[in-house]
């Protein structure tokens, strides 16, 4: 259930909003929730906050629909969940990726949220041999072009590898990658041109 870390909620009732937040918190630790107070600023806020999931009560949506929102915010991947406070609005929900209602049980909501995450999100976190090789070159300060030449790969492939490395390790800076490489003994300090200054 990696995909829904940041949620945005359009719900005018304080009580229902608080209930939804409390339940999301029970499903997954560390969920961040942003509430949209003014639906006319919804698109702007989606662009700014980049949520993974949008919970929208169709009654509060002010004419917004998932297809319009996705198209106008350039977020085709945004998961839109209908948050139904009223059984009669069931008919508007087909366009949504999922729907939850105020009479759903905790287990039902949890299962629906889990079903939203694409299969196999818990992908392999350890690096392949090739990826480790690339880490060592990156840490030694080689450019993508130099790495590509050394390994007989295209630059494009090197970039793809680097992107996969960053997402597997969740490390996005080269300083971070260096700490990783030294701590896990992939390279030695001498290899990266670092003296013992400041040690």
């Amino acid at each position: 259930m990696k995909r829904f870390l940041k949620c945005m909620v359009v719900e005018s009732s304080d009580l229902l909003y608080a209930g939804l937040v409390a339940m999301l918190g029970q499903i997954r630790a560390g969920i961040q929730v942003v509430r949209v107070q003014d639906v006319s600023r919804l698109r702007e806020q989606i662009k700014r906050e980049q949520p993974d999931v949008l919970f929208l009560n169709p009654l509060d949506g002010g004419g917004e629909t998932p297809s319009k929102i996705k198209a106008n915010t350039d977020r085709p991947d945004l998961l839109c969940v209908a948050f139904l406070s009223d059984l009669s609005s069931l008919s508007v929900a087909p366009e949504y990726d999922a729907q939850i209602g105020i009479y759903d049980s905790f287990e039902q909501i949890r299962d629906k949220m889990e079903a939203l995450s694409p299969k196999g999100t818990e992908e392999e976190k350890t690096l392949s041999q090739r990826e480790k090789e690339i880490v060592t070159y990156v840490v030694k300060g080689l450019t993508n072009k130099q790495i590509a030449d050394k390994l007989f790969l295209s630059q494009h492939t090197v970039v793809t590898h680097r992107r996969n490395i960053a997402s597997k390790l969740n490390i996005h800076s080269s300083a971070g990658l260096t700490v990783y490489a030294i701590a896990s003994k992939l390279v030695r300090l001498e290899d990266i041109g670092g003296g013992m200054k400041g040690a």
């Binding site: 300083a175 260096t178 700490v179 030294i182 300090l189 200054k197 400041g198 040690a199």
Partner: peptide
């Protein structure tokens, strides 16, 4: 593991 200490402090300085 003085090597780790070096890169961690370097990371922190950059930060």
């Amino acid at each position: 593991r003085a090597d780790v200490s070096v890169v961690v402090l370097r990371f922190f300085d950059e930060y």
